[in-house]
Simulated scan of single mutants.
Amino acid sequence: MNNTILSSEFQDYLKSIEHEDFKKIVLKKSPFESISSAEIAQQLKGLQVSKYKFPTLYKTKNIFFPPSINLEQASSEATANYKSSIIEGKTLIDLTAGFGIDTMAFAKRFSKVYHIEKNKELSEIVKNNTSILTPNVDVYSNSFQDFFEQHSELKFDVIYLDPARRNSGGRKFILEDLEPNILEWIPTFFEKSDKIMIKLSPLLDISLTLEQIIHISEIHIVALKNEVKDFLILLDKNNTLKNPIIKAINLESNQTNFQFNFFDEIDAIASYGSVSKYIYEPNVSILKTGAFKLVSEKLNLTKLHQNTHLYTSSEIMNEFPGKIYEVEHEIRNPKKEITKMKANMLVKNFNQSIDSIKKKFKIIDGGDTTLIFTQSMNGFHILKTSRIY
C-alpha cells in the first residue's frame, strides 16, 4: 500500500480529475514521482465507482481504493446496510471480508467486529479505511482457520461469511463448490456462535439449500433496483424446523417486502383465469423465492396460468411489489397492428421467443407502450398495455 496516495496533495489532485477516463490516465505520465499512473487510475476508478456503489466512501477523505476486482466483488453499501439491519449483537466476525463494505456496515451496529482477509495488501487498505470510518473493527490478515487457532477462546454473537466459488467452469452451481465448504465448516462455526449468516449465490435453489443445510431460520432474497444481489441464509443453532421465514426485498424502490414461511407456498391455493384490466409482474426477488401461488392467494390476484407468473385483476392494486400494466386492448391482428411498432416487450410463457417475435414483426425497442406476449388458461394473448408503476 502506497501511503503517499493519502497525502493531501494527491487527494486534491484525485478530486480534480474525478470526471476523467481512468483508462486514459494509465497512458499518461504521472505528475507524482512516487505514485505511478496505474496507481492513479486505480484510485480514480475507485472514486468513480464509490459515488454510486459506496457513497459513504465517496464522501470521506483519505479513503484508499483497492484493485478493480475487489471493487467488483464488494457488496454495495445499500445491500451491506440491509445485511446489518437483520442481525444484532455485540460481537461479529466476518470470515471472508474482502474490501470490508459489509464489515463497516456491521460495525455501525456491533460493538466489536473482526475483519478476516488473507490478502495482506487488501487488509492494509481496509485497516486504513476502517480507522477513519469504523475504528471498532479489528483487521486480521490471515485465514479464519488460523484466527480460530490463535484465538480459540473467542466466541461471537454472529458469524458472517461470503464464500467464494472454487469452480469457474460451466458446471451447475452447488454448495460443495464453495470455499470454504460451508457444509463441512458449519459444525465448527456453531462452536463459536449460535448465529450464522451466509451469503450464497442467487443461482442456488432454495429447496435444495434447505435439504442440505439444517438450522436455517430465515432466508432473505435481496434485490437492488430489481436486480437480485444477495441470497442470505440465517442459521440459528437452536432451530431444527425446515420451515424458515422467507423475505423478498427490493431495495431502493417503493415496493413493500413480501414475506412468508417456506411451507406456505406448498399449501397455497392460487386462483386462475384470463386477462382482466390490470397485469402484474412480481419483482425479481419474489420470483426467485418461487412464491407463485402465494402471490395470488395473499394478494387476492388471479394467476393467468400455472406456468405464467403474471397476475391480473379488474381493480388496481397500487401497492403491488412489482410492475403494473394497464391493458388497453388485446391484439387480434398482430401483423397489421404491431408490425414496425415502437414498444417495450414482455414475453412470459408464450409459444415464441422474444427474439423471434421482434424479428417477425420488426418491433423497435422503446416508447410508452408495452406489448405483453403471454398465455392464460384460455390460450395465448398479445396485449397492448401501458406501464403504470
Results as ranks from 00 to 15, higher is better:
1 M>A: 01
2 N>S: 02
3 N>A: 05
8 S>A: 10
9 E>Q: 11
9 E>N: 10
13 Y>R: 01
13 Y>T: 08
13 Y>W: 09
25 I>A: 01
28 K>G: 12
30 S>I: 12
32 F>G: 04
37 S>H: 12
39 E>A: 03
44 L>H: 03
49 V>T: 09
51 K>Y: 12
52 Y>E: 15
53 K>F: 10
55 P>C: 05
57 L>D: 08
62 N>W: 12
72 E>Q: 08
73 Q>G: 04
75 S>Q: 06
79 T>W: 05
85 S>Q: 06
88 E>K: 14
89 G>Q: 04
93 I>M: 01
95 L>H: 04
95 L>K: 01
98 G>E: 03
98 G>I: 03
101 I>P: 10
104 M>Y: 07
105 A>K: 00
108 K>Y: 12
113 V>Q: 02
116 I>K: 02
121 E>W: 10
135 P>Q: 04
146 D>E: 15
147 F>R: 01
156 F>Q: 04
156 F>I: 07
157 D>V: 10
162 D>G: 00
171 R>A: 10
171 R>Y: 15
177 D>I: 04
180 P>Y: 05
181 N>V: 11
191 E>D: 12
193 S>Y: 12
198 I>T: 01
211 E>T: 12
216 I>R: 02
217 S>P: 11
218 E>A: 05
221 I>E: 14
225 K>L: 09
226 N>G: 07
234 L>A: 05
234 L>Y: 15
236 D>Q: 01
236 D>R: 01
251 L>N: 06
257 N>Q: 14
261 N>I: 06
265 E>F: 04
268 A>T: 06
269 I>L: 04
277 K>Y: 13
284 V>C: 08
289 T>C: 03
292 F>C: 05
295 V>P: 12
295 V>M: 01
303 K>L: 11
306 Q>L: 15
306 Q>T: 14
307 N>E: 14
308 T>R: 03
312 T>E: 05
318 N>R: 15
320 F>S: 02
323 K>N: 14
324 I>C: 01
325 Y>S: 01
333 N>F: 12
334 P>Y: 09
340 K>G: 07
342 K>W: 14
342 K>A: 14
343 A>R: 07
347 V>E: 00
348 K>Y: 09
351 N>H: 15
359 K>D: 15
360 K>T: 14
361 F>G: 02
366 G>K: 08
366 G>F: 13
366 G>E: 14
368 D>S: 13
370 T>N: 09
371 L>F: 08
372 I>V: 06
375 Q>W: 12
381 H>K: 06
384 K>I: 10
385 T>W: 08
